[in-house]
Amino acid sequence: MPDELIVNGTPHPLPQDPRVTLLDFLRHDLGLTGTKKGCDHGQCGACTVIVNGLRINSCLTLAAMHEGHQVTTIEGLGIADEPSPLQRAFVEHDGFQCGYCTPGQICSATAMLDEIANGWPSDASETLDGPFEASGAEIRERMSGNLCRCGAYANIVAAIRHVAESEPAA
């Protein structure tokens, strides 16, 4: 599939200008504005998307570098009529206020729960060998790449823990 990247299952041609970041490609070229630009320098996490199963900052990568890759954005995780468990839990636990960091938090948390299930350690892990639990301490470290200036962290952690505890490990 040359010169295309796949976003939420749909292939799209790459931009003409190689300077276009994956973030601007999603927001501007595709109109998928759920992915947010908070800092444009990998310092806030609002632009987090999942590429080939891994969460990344879409602001610090060029669209052209992702030819043939599978990109999942917040729009691909769930819709209002059919929200994902994390999306639902964020509403229930008030895991946001202004909402601007929220899609990034949810994309990040979605991939983060997979990382725990895969037995990946974090800086907060007592040992480097798994398995690891979605404890408060683990979630906080693993989610630290997603800033929330409204200060909804406590509720975000509650929302994620709720999902981690109610979902069977992947």
């Binding site: 990998g42 996490g45 987090t48 891994l54 969460r55 990344i56 900052n57 610090l60 990568t61 990040s108 991939a111 983060m112 990382e115 350690p121 974090s122 800086d123 892990s125 480097l128 693993r142 630290s144 790449g145």
Partner: peptide, 19 residues
């Protein structure tokens, strides 16, 4: 080489380390 794993995990964020 746990010191290497620990040093990497102490740096940046998971999103950045993934790239």
């Amino acid at each position: 080489y746990p010191v290497l794993a620990r040093a990497i995990l102490a740096g940046a964020t998971q999103q950045l380390r993934n790239k």
